[in-house]
Write a protein that binds this DNA or RNA. Structure first.
Lengths: 105, 105
DNA sequence: GTATTCTACAACCAAATGGTTGTAGATCAG
DNA sequence: CTGATCTACAACCATTTGGTTGTAGAATAC
């Protein structure tokens, strides 16, 4: 996973609206306009948030009739999960090591 | 943990230089100029990156003589760890549920 | 057919980002 | 005291971000 990919991932998560979109589309199916109806902002603004999530490989868009269905991207979400798990593990180790050092003194 | 805090956390992690700074200062001690020497950018630029990490509660700065020592902020890092762990858990659940749904069909 | 709905995309705007240089204050070394 | 070092901060710049409105094309409804 390249540094640029990681950049895009964290950047995509750095907005509450986008985090909410990810939560919703990993459970159910939403069209872009279906999502747009949920937030106090324009359709175009939501469209842009979805585009950011697509670029970060967290969601996919699939055309169905005149609608565009947004779904969680399993592969991307799993990559994200593994990345966060890795970070979590590294920091847990470090926290333990620091605790040990403090215990020595 | 407020949405704004989560925003700042992910935003802080969305830059490779900042992720590297966090890695380093959770292990050892670095002055701001010590960090600045590591990257192909100006001292002021690194100063700004450190400021972003301070705002996100991931590192602290402590004055020692004429230097400013940057260290990992245990509390902030632990909050981040727990947050990522939570996300990781949610997504693992969802991945399992999706797998079940696919298995049914 | 016409009207409506859903989407895409451009243009625009204000604010934030990520970088720069330059100036000035503190601290330390000699 | 003088000079070097470390830091802070302001000013500036280009680009990105997060939002807006408006226009136009495709698909559906009637």
């Amino acid at each position: 996973m390249s540094e640029a990919e990681v950049d895009r991932l964290f950047q995509a998560f750095s907005d509450a609206t986008r985090r909410d979109i990810v939560r919703r589309v990993t459970v159910g199916e939403y069209s872009v306009s279906g999502l747009a109806a949920l937030y106090a902002m324009s359709f175009a603004a939501v469209q842009k948030h979805v585009a950011v999530l697509v670029r970060a490989s967290l969601v996919t868009k699939e055309k169905r009739g005149r609608e565009q269905i947004v779904r969680g991207n399993h592969e991307g979400l799993d990559k994200a999960r593994r990345l966060l798990d890795e970070y979590e593990a590294i920091w847990r180790q470090r926290a333990e090591r620091i605790a040990d050092i403090l215990a020595e003194g």
